[in-house]
């Protein structure tokens, strides 16, 4: 087996002086969908922000394709194949849908391939094609989430970081979006690291899962086993 695409070694990070995550270690293999589940404030988003170098680690390492990202500036990572769909979508509200997608390919110089990829995003999300000259801020929550995912796909990621794509969306739309994520993973062999509060859905989609509690990884197993685990069912699935 080749080296994991992402490995965290005893990573501690936080926004102030106190770390929000402590000694987090996890691995993501190529082609996998891995999920981090946990309650609000467990440190899931902090973990993603540290992986994408927006937040500098206090101690520990982030190894992406075997190399430490500590010396790599955040803006270099998309070109290395690490793209993020941030929490709360964070689309550019006063840019059009097409311009938002263009921003996802900001670092790319291959114009023809970018146009081809935009077509591909429009095939995945036909709603975005209908709205492509509309300002991002005028879209519904579900459409904005599609746009945020489409924007990240425009960078042709090897590893896609997804932060709570189900946040505030109707169940039907969430199901649609999760089906698309599975399709992307299967068709283009894209590795996905998914952070979710909705444990049931996330474990239904992922191959493996990590459970996060108050800044630490408390448990890890295959998604199936976690779904069967009585503690998980009680704590996160409301049984």
């Amino acid at each position: 087996m080749s080296a994991p695409i992402l490995e965290l070694r005893n990573l501690s990070a936080g926004w102030g002086s106190a770390p929000a995550i402590r000694e987090v270690s996890l691995t993501v293999e190529r082609g996998e969908i891995v999920t981090i589940i946990g309650a609000n404030g467990a440190g899931k988003s902090t973990t993603l922000m540290a992986i994408s170098s927006i937040l500098r680690p206090m101690s520990g390492q982030v190894l992406y394709e075997g190399a430490d990202t500590a010396s790599v500036a955040a803006e270099k990572l998309p070109a290395m194949g690490l793209c993020q769909v941030p929490e709360g979508r964070r689309i550019f509200p006063r840019l059009t849908v097409a311009e938002n997608l263009d921003m996802g390919a900001y670092f790319r110089k291959d114009g023809d391939a970018v146009r081809h990829d935009m077509e591909h995003v429009f095939e995945l999300f036909p709603r975005l094609r209908e709205r492509r000259d509309q300002k991002g801020g005028t879209l519904s929550g579900g459409e904005q989430q599609m746009l945020a995912i489409g924007r990240a796909l425009m960078g042709r990621p090897k590893l896609l970081l997804l932060d709570e794509p189900s946040l505030g969306l109707a169940p039907l739309i969430v199901e649609h979006i999760f089906a698309i994520i599975r399709r992307i993973n299967e068709e283009s062999d894209m590795t996905v690291l998914l952070v979710e509060q909705n444990a049931n859905l996330a474990l239904g989609l992922a191959h493996r899962g990590y459970v996060m509690e108050t800044g630490r990884i408390s448990m890890t197993d295959t998604a199936e086993n976690l779904l069967q685990n009585p503690d998980i069912r009680r704590a996160y699935l409301g049984e």
Binding site: S52, I54, A73, A74, E75, K76, L77, P78, A79, C83, Q84, P86, R90, I91, F92, P93, R94, L95, E99, M103, G104, Y106, F107, R151, G155
Partner: peptide
Amino acid sequence: EAIREDETAAAIMGVN
């Protein structure tokens, strides 16, 4: 314009 709209998101897109 991306920076004006959302600086963090622009950085995530690879904007220095």
